[in-house]
Amino acid sequence: MQYSKKTTDLAAEIVTQCTACGRCMKDCLFLQNNCETPKAFFEKVVQGQEIESVVPYSCLLCGHCQFVCPQKLQLDAAFLSMRQDLMAQQKQLPLKALKGVLFHQKFSTSALFTTVKKSGDKK
C-alpha cells in the first residue's frame, strides 16, 4: 500500500514524538485491539507495510487519544488520512460494509428526506 504524503507525514510525526506512555491506550478498546503502541503501529505505516483496511476504519475518530496525549498527537487524523488513501487508490470500496454508508448518505441528502422552512414562512 502506497500511502499519500499527508498520511506518511502524520505517521512520521507520531513515530518521532510518541513516547509510548500508554495514556491513549488505557481506555481505548480500538487501540488495545490493534497495536502495542501508536509508535509501533505507525512505523508500519511509514514503512508502507500492508495493514488490513478494517483497522483504520475501526478507529472511532473520537479524539480521546489526542486529549490525553502529552504530545497532543493526532492519531485520529492519521487514521482518517489512511481511509482517504484507501478510498482514492482502490477501485472497489475498501470494505463491503461501507456500501451502507453510501446508500445512507445518498438518501440523507435527497429531496425526499430534506426540507427548508424559511424564516417567516407560515404554516
Binding site: D27, F30, V54, Y57, S58, L60, C62, H64, A97
Partner: peptide, 14 residues
C-alpha cells in the same frame, strides 16, 4: 475526557 459511545467514526458499520 469523554469516550465515544461506540458509533463514532462509522465503526458501527465497519
Amino acid at each position: 475526557n469523554t469516550l465515544c459511545c461506540g458509533m463514532g467514526g462509522m465503526c458501527g458499520v465497519s
